[in-house]
Simulated scan of single mutants.
Amino acid sequence: MPITTFKVLVIDDSNTIRRSAEIFLKQGGHEVILAEDGFDALAKVNDCQPDLIFCDILMPRLDGYQACAIIKRNAKFADVPIVMLSSKDGVFDKARGRMVGAQDYLTKPFTKDQLLHAVQEFGRAMQGIS
């Protein structure tokens, strides 16, 4: 089965996390867009129209929960899957992510396999492939 290529936006204020995610995703054959905070991400979502978004929770200016809620309120992007990224693995954090529209939650540090599995899982769901 051929692997489908997706356009993935990674939002994280950590340069290390952004670069790691970019390397992993590009190795998986995906197109990668990087944003360093929620405000930067909002412009890039509109300009690049990603297929999937990975979004850090703790960021300056506009945190991941706020960015996710704003993206999901826009009808044009309401169906774009968002996976929250956080070093915190609490039930409250996961529940809050779901409340603002996130589809899943990945704990940092993540592995290449975890990242690529999430892309394939949500990419297939978007295309209606089971």
Rank of each mutant, 00 (worst) to 15 (best):
S87W: 05
C48M: 13
D47A: 08
H30K: 13
Q66N: 06
I71N: 05
I53G: 06
L85S: 07
Q127T: 05
A69K: 14
A125T: 05
G128V: 01
F6V: 12
D63Y: 09
K72A: 04
D47H: 08
V100A: 13
Q114I: 00
L25H: 09
I11V: 15
A67Y: 01
F39T: 01
V83D: 07
S14F: 02
P50L: 05
V10P: 01
D63S: 07
R73K: 15
K7Q: 07
K88E: 14
I57C: 05
T111G: 15
E36H: 15
M99I: 11
S87A: 15
Q27H: 11
V32Q: 11
S86P: 06
G97E: 09
T16R: 14
D104F: 01
K44F: 01
P60K: 13
K26E: 14
D40W: 07
E31M: 14
V100M: 14
L85R: 01
K94M: 11
G97I: 13
P60E: 06
L115H: 02
L9N: 07
F110I: 02
D93V: 00
D13W: 10
Q127N: 14
M59E: 13
D93W: 02
T4G: 12
I33G: 06
S14E: 07
M59I: 08
E36M: 11
I129R: 03
I17E: 12
A102E: 15
A118G: 00
S20R: 08
L116S: 02
R96M: 15
T111N: 03
D56I: 12
D93Y: 00
R18N: 12
I70C: 06
M1C: 10
V45Q: 11
F54D: 10
F54I: 10
R61A: 12
G90K: 10
R73Q: 15
M84V: 11
